[in-house]
């Protein structure tokens, strides 16, 4: 797992994806920070965090698109799958590499907190609550993105499908409202990523949301392992 983690981290930077991701995250969070936080004259960064949901929807598939699709296309998966390592550690190595880069990108908010600290009071509990809400959201999204990457050989397809799926998750609440069948509506709202995430950024700490995001992450990593395993039997 360590070897794959290190290689993926290196590959993020040599392929330039890391720079795109870090720059994109910094650009948009900076934009929202200056407009919605500094511009509104508040010290609470929650508005920025809620706006970042949609940005993450677009950025994470870029991070995960080539993780497994490129291995398959270049046949480098033969090297991995015939090495004495388990499928789980291959998948988790890649997953945690992406998650680590996400954490690095997200940690830019601590620079913003310094800016706030210079002219006001940082409410650390809200900031950390927001920070971890975004982290777990990212953890779930990355697992989904990695899973989609395992399904295709084409990284562009992987990115497009990823963005589509995450965008549908973003729209889930609005879609749910229009579904007349009550139990489906309730189920969709209960499963909604966006409303759960927004609740967290408003300072409502809900353990079930954290558990939900982690479960999604575990579940999709498991699916990814199954996809790799199943491919051997095809």
């Amino acid at each position: 797992m360590g070897a794959i983690f290190r290689r993926e981290m290196g590959a993020f930077f040599t392929s330039g994806i890391a720079y795109v991701f870090l720059a994109g995250f910094a650009l948009f969070s900076g934009l929202f920070f200056s407009l919605n936080v500094v511009g509104s004259g508040i010290s609470d960064m929650s508005p920025m965090f809620s706006s970042m949901f949609l940005i993450v929807v677009f950025l994470i598939p870029i991070l995960t698109m080539r993780l497994l699709s490129e291995e398959k296309k270049n046949r480098t998966d033969q090297g991995l799958l015939t090495a004495p390592v388990s499928l789980t550690s291959i998948v988790l190595g890649k997953y945690f590499a992406a998650l680590a880069l996400f954490i690095i990108a997200e940690s830019v908010v601590f620079i913003y907190s310094i800016i706030i600290a210079l002219c006001g009071q940082v409410v650390w509990s809200t900031l950390l609550g927001n920070y971890f809400a975004m982290l777990f959201l990212g953890a779930a999204f990355i697992a989904i993105g990695l899973f989609i990457s395992s399904l295709t050989e084409n990284q562009m397809a992987s990115a497009v499908i990823g963005i589509f799926v995450l965008f549908m998750l973003y729209l889930m609440d609005s879609l749910a409202v229009n579904i007349p069948v009550e139990f489906i509506q309730k189920a969709l709202i209960a499963a909604s990523f966006y409303s759960r995430y927004i609740e967290l950024t408003r300072g409502v700490f809900d353990l079930s949301t954290i558990v939900y995001f982690i479960s999604i992450a575990v579940l999709f990593n498991f699916f990814t392992v199954r996809v790799l395993d199943k491919r051997r039997w095809a």
Binding site: A11, T76, G79
Partner: peptide, 17 residues
């Protein structure tokens, strides 16, 4: 697998390394 060294038809090389 730890007993095997395998060179597939297309060598599994990461060209960016």
């Amino acid at each position: 697998k730890s007993n095997i060294g395998y060179l597939p038809e297309i060598p599994p090389l990461y060209v960016d390394m």
